[in-house]
Design a protein around this nucleic acid. Structure first.
Length: 803
DNA sequence: GAAGGCACTTAGTACAGTGAAC
DNA sequence: GTTCACTGTACTAAGTGCCTTC
């Protein structure tokens, strides 16, 4: 299929092309059916069928897209069901086991529900119409055994999954993560570790000296006027914060801690029923709800002003779940969400919120003190003899699930977590006490994991964890290691690039797909793109890109061989990019798209496991995500080198830093919604600019007048005044320039989030070194929390550090 | 070897806190 | 003292990738 043909099925790219990309995509494409297509699309077959159906049903194109994907996801279900038909008993038993598991899971759920009796009235599940199971059974059975291409290893994954003849090109031995981690550190960090060991003695001596110094200072300061408690607190805090774990020996393989003690999590406060005068109305009639139903109703009421409640799926899920918390009589009465009136509740919450805002200083202070007490008690743990902050010691309160994008589960009730749901992890003999009269689900002593407590959340069945905060050793060590792997990639990236460029020419489709995908991951810092379940929002990454997500242009805006990417990535954030690529990549993509429907996988012979296996063969510890870290950090280093002028002022240097940071954020597609106050603040800034311009105009006029006068009269006074005016004018112009730069900066940053890259992708040693080299205070780049997180880097990196 | 589980990182948003401007 | 706008933090959803199970 030529690109023109592809283009025919895609909307004009460019402005606003995003969500409309699907429009008309299926037009005519179905006509290209081939052998390859047939077997490749086993997993797509039914989704295509359904897609056509859904097209008729749905008006919203974007929605359609998601629906399609959910059907896409059905393909996995179907896949496994097909297997059931085609394959041996083993598959049957697999399916059975799966069902067994699900049943067990359901039983567990039930048990948990029972345990929550205390907080909710238990109601037997209501047989509301279940639309989830609308997949036609007929479409599930589909044999494909005969459709496998005879070409070696050059088959779509869907087909290959059925055969056992996959040629294994990868190294057979897969090593343990711990081994890898150790060896990762090996190459790059080993030297450092050695150095660290050598220096350890010296440093320990230094440390002892420092401690002595601190002690003496303490002793000296306490009798002084300064508040002893305040000082003591500060010093204690500092002591806690300055555990230089990076100078210590690492734990052995897989061991995360030797001792761990904590007080357990903090549970959400019990539900406080609404005052009697706050009424819920159904069909215009006031109604007092049972406590359980009322609590869930308040979750919804509190969100009435939010966009979520305009979404059908949100309302549907909420109502279905809400009914589970109603009494029999409530269920009989409350039959339609549209007839429910929660506004009185919302008004009450708003008033409460106002009340909170208007608290007196004393009240606020008291509240703050109370919170601090809680943090003091539950916010810290003792790990290997050191006190460390816990990141999230509060258990998530109940509420409505706020899935992002078009999440099929949004609006479902997130149930209250009880001690009976919680697994505690700590040293033997140190288990925290559960709340009075309650029990933990389990207490374990697993020192190969970093979490302190966990529970399984009911909406998605995911495990949630209580973990240490980012300033802790456990997090810092991993962070350091992450950047070391990225630096290791820097040393061999050129070779890897040569390899994948060579692979673009491979005879094997699988290898060509892998090579092109890797090129995208490397060039565009795309995420790997794991496959997703049908009960999640339809988002993709590189390996899971579908044909509908890209458009090819032989020529676009004066550039040759342009690939236009338009898809929803993580958090349903749109990724739109027009990328000129090498001809060979372009031609390959053309081939990958041939005879495929919009909803088909672009890389049908590739997934993240295959990609990462390959990457790990190229370099130990390498996975797709390392490219993002590497490219982000590398970009920062390059941009800083390019943009920083050593003669500039600190302000200008910071501007340069922010620009470099922004370049990375753009690369990684870190977006944010435009701040609510943006328009207004821009308006204010514009006003300032206008005022400044007026001032400049006036100053210019008076300068001219003064100059004229000086020339005319030759008076020294007039000449001095003109000189002064000139200086004033220059100053004003400079101020104007600054304001205009600020406006540009703000405008450019409107939709870009700098924090994510700073926190997760940029090797902090680059920033630290840059600060040290250019005499920029580190506080200008990192706030307190960030400095805590990157303490290791601040301590470690000198001005000479280069990524 | 597919699928699911698990542990962890990465992500954007909401809101509280804070300090500057008026 | 009040308002406004920006910053920092808490929160929790959504990714990645390795490991285990069957």
């Amino acid at each position: 299929m030529g690109s023109a043909e592809v283009d025919k099925h895609t909307p004009p790219s460019g402005d606003g092309a995003g969500k409309d990309v699907l429009t008309g995509l299926s037009n005519g494409i179905d006509r290209h059916r081939s052998k390859d297509k047939d077997h490749h699309s086993h997993k797509h077959k039914h989704k295509d069928k359904d897609r056509e159906k859904s097209k008729e049903k749905s008006r919203d194109k974007h929605k359609d897209k998601h629906k399609d994907k959910h059907r896409d996801k059905d393909k996995h279900k179907e896949k496994s069901k097909d297997k059931k038909h085609d394959k041996d008993d083993h598959k049957h038993s697999k399916e059975d086991r799966k069902q067994d598991k699900e049943e067990k899971k359901r039983e567990k759920e039930k048990l948990r529900e029972k345990s929550e009796k205390a907080s909710y009235v238990e109601v037997k599940s209501e047989p509301l119409s279940d639309e989830d199971d609308d997949m036609p059974l007929a479409s599930r059975s589909f044999s494909q055994s005969s459709q496998i291409d005879s070409e070696d290893d050059d088959q779509p994954l869907a087909a290959r999954k059925k055969t056992k003849t996959v040629v294994k090109t990868e190294k057979p031995v897969k090593r343990k993560a711990e081994e890898m981690a150790d060896e990762e550190n090996g190459d790059v960090s080993k030297k450092k570790n050695k150095k660290v060991k050598e220096e350890k003695k010296v440093k320990e001596e230094k440390k002892v000296k420092e401690e002595k110094k601190v002690k003496t200072e303490k002793q000296q300061s306490t009798p002084n006027g300064a508040s002893p408690t305040k000082r003591g607190k500060k010093e204690k805090k500092e002591e806690e914060e300055t555990w230089k774990w990076w100078e210590e020996e690492k734990h052995e393989d897989g061991v995360k801690w030797k001792s761990l003690e904590h007080k357990g999590p903090v549970f959400a406060a019990d539900y406080e029923p609404l005052p009697g005068n706050i009424k819920f109305k159904f069909n215009g009639k006031e109604m007092k709800l049972s406590p359980a139903a009322e609590e869930v109703a308040t979750f919804y009421a509190a969100m009435l002003d939010h966009e979520y409640v305009t979404k059908e799926i949100f309302n549907k899920n909420f109502f279905k779940d809400w009914r589970k918390f109603m009494t029999q009589s409530e269920k009989e009465i409350i039959t339609d969400l549209k007839k429910c009136d929660f506004t009185h509740m919302l008004t009450y919450f708003k008033a409460k919120s106002e009340e909170r805002k208007n608290r007196t200083k004393e009240e606020k202070q008291q509240l703050k003190a109370e919170n601090e007490e809680v943090v003091k008690e539950y916010g810290w743990c003792t790990i290997d003899g050191h006190k460390q902050r816990i990141g999230n010691f509060k258990i998530e309160p109940p509420g409505l699930f706020r899935g992002r994008g078009d999440h099929p589960k949004m609006g479902m009730v997130k149930r209250r977590v009880t001690p009976e749901d919680v697994i505690i992890n700590c040293s033997k003999g140190t288990a925290p006490k559960p709340p009075p009269g309650r029990k933990w689900k389990e207490v374990r002593h697993d020192n190969t994991v970093t979490w302190l407590a966990s529970w399984t959340e009911n909406v998605q069945g995911q495990v949630k964890y209580i973990m240490l905060n980012s300033a802790s050793r456990l997090k810092g060590e991993r962070d350091w290691q992450k950047y070391e792997v990225a630096r290791k990639l820097k040393d061999c990236v050129e070779k890897i690039r040569e390899t994948y460029k060579e692979d673009w020419k491979s005879k094997e489709m699988k290898i060509r797909q892998r090579a092109v995908a890797l090129y995208f991951i490397d060039k565009l810092a795309l995420r790997a793109g794991n496959e997703k379940d049908e009960d999640q929002a339809d988002t993709v990454g590189c390996c899971s890109l579908r044909v509908e997500h890209i458009t090819l242009h032989e020529q676009k805006n004066g550039k040759q061989y342009v690939v236009v990417f338009d898809f929803l990535g993580k958090d349903s954030i749109r990724y739109y990019n027009e990328v000129p690529v090498e001809k060979r990549v372009f031609k390959n993509v053309q081939i990958f798209m041939e005879n495929k429907k919009p909803g088909d996988d672009l890389f049908d012979r590739l997934n993240t496991t295959i990609m990462n296996k390959h990457l790990n063969d190229l370099m130990e510890g390498l996975s797709a995500k390392v490219f993002r870290t590497f490219n982000a950090s590398n970009t920062l280093q390059e941009q800083l080198d390019k943009l920083t002028e050593s003669k500039s002022s600190v302000t200008e240097k910071i501007l340069a830093y922010n620009r470099a940071n922004r370049a990375v954020a753009i690369l990684c597609n870190h977006q944010r919604s435009v701040p609510k106050t943006f328009a207004k603040s821009m308006e204010n800034l514009q006003k300032k600019i206008d005022t400044k311009k007026e001032a400049i105009e006036a100053a210019e006029k008076s300068y001219k007048d003064l100059k004229k006068e000086a020339k005319k009269t030759g008076a020294a006074a007039a000449s001095i005044a003109a000189g002064k005016k000139e200086k004033q004018l220059e100053k004003l112009k400079e101020q104007l320039m600054k304001l205009e730069v600020q406006a540009t900066d703000r405008e450019e940053n409107k939709e870009i989030a700098l924090g994510t890259s700073k926190l997760n992708y940029l090797d902090p040693r680059i920033s630290v070194a840059w600060c040290k080299k250019h005499d920029v205070p580190i506080e200008k780049i990192y706030n307190k929390t960030q400095r805590d997180k990157f303490q290791w880097a601040i301590d470690m990196a000198g001005p000479e550090f280069v990524f």
